[in-house]
């Protein structure tokens, strides 16, 4: 059944997902009653204050952890199967590069692990390095790169096997504002070209609005989804600096903020922005 319903159209389907951690100081309910659907090719951001379970939800989707209740399907399969089939690529707040490997060898790591032959790997790595603008740095080591460059390597690595789903946990969280905005534009272009669905965790409202088709707003204690904002800025609208100046953009930023705070933001508050 799930094949016909979820086979192609749905990247992620979470139903009534909850996650409880057993800690020394008792049980921590990190997530409860999470229902989420991400269509193939859709860009969905998860936003919310620290501790609302964004990372936990992403780890569940990636099968880095398993839910305490509810079910998750990734392209109609269990997350474990999707992980084994390499249906998703993943990137975290820390780039997590292997310091003894060059940029090229880091980007090619998943390909290497999955037995892609040397020639095909070199070609794909060159393509990816080009895509993230690091062709000239392919032979460098991670400690010779800036934080933004390292993060681009990590993103290239997550794209290595052309996954249909990208899971990204605050990938730009450690970057300065300028680098961050440039990376957002780049990511938008890259994702547009690849056609992958994206689940993108962020703290930043403008970032979520800029990138997403939909923004899922979460709330802590216990972590749950409290609202969903359709951004409605079409994929055909170029994600560039001018978009950040439009009234439509500001209106969506305000809408997400209101959803996040649970109350309408006052007129003065709006101007203060």
């Amino acid at each position: 059944m799930s094949e016909t319903i979820n086979g192609d159209g749905v990247a992620v389907a979470a139903n009534g997902v909850g996650k409880t951690f057993d800690t020394r100081s008792g049980e921590v309910q990190a997530l409860t009653g999470v229902d989420l659907r991400v269509a193939a090719g859709e860009f969905v951001s998860l936003i919310g204050p620290s501790g609302c379970g964004k990372s936990t939800l992403m780890r569940l989707l990636a099968d880095l952890d398993s839910p305490s209740e509810g079910t998750i399907e990734v392209f109609g399969k269990t997350p474990a199967q999707a992980r084994r089939d390499q249906d998703y690529g993943i990137a975290f707040q820390q780039a997590g590069l292997l310091p003894w490997r060059t940029v090229a060898a880091n980007i090619g790591l998943p390909l290497e692990l999955h037995g892609t032959d040397r020639a095909a790997r070199a070609a794909r790595v060159a393509e990816l390095a080009e895509l993230v603008g690091l062709s000239d740095f392919a032979d460098r080591y991670p400690d010779q790169l800036s934080g933004g460059m390292q993060q681009r390597v990590a993103i290239a690595r997550s794209l290595a096997e052309q996954p249909r789903l990208l899971l990204m946990d605050e990938p730009f969280g450690a970057l300065d504002e300028m680098t961050r905005e440039r990376m957002q534009a780049e990511l938008s272009r890259i994702v547009g070209e690849s056609g992958a669905a994206v689940v993108f965790v962020t703290h930043s409202i403008p970032e979520a609005v800029f990138l997403s088709d939909r923004v899922v707003v979460m709330s802590p204690r216990p972590g749950r989804i409290t609202g969903v904002v359709d951004i409605g800025i079409g994929r055909d609208v170029p994600r560039d600096e001018s978009l950040r100046e439009t009234t439509a953009f500001f209106a969506k930023v305000t809408e997400v903020r209101e959803a996040l705070h649970g109350t309408p933001v006052t007129a003065s508050g709006r101007e203060g922005r």
């Binding site: 099968d63 880095l64 997590g96």
Partner: peptide, 18 residues
């Protein structure tokens, strides 16, 4: 080995020997 690196290897479905 850091938890991050171990998570990455798991996400690649790397075998124990890999």
């Amino acid at each position: 080995t850091t938890p991050l690196h171990r998570d990455l290897m798991r996400s690649y479905a790397a075998t124990g020997s890999q």
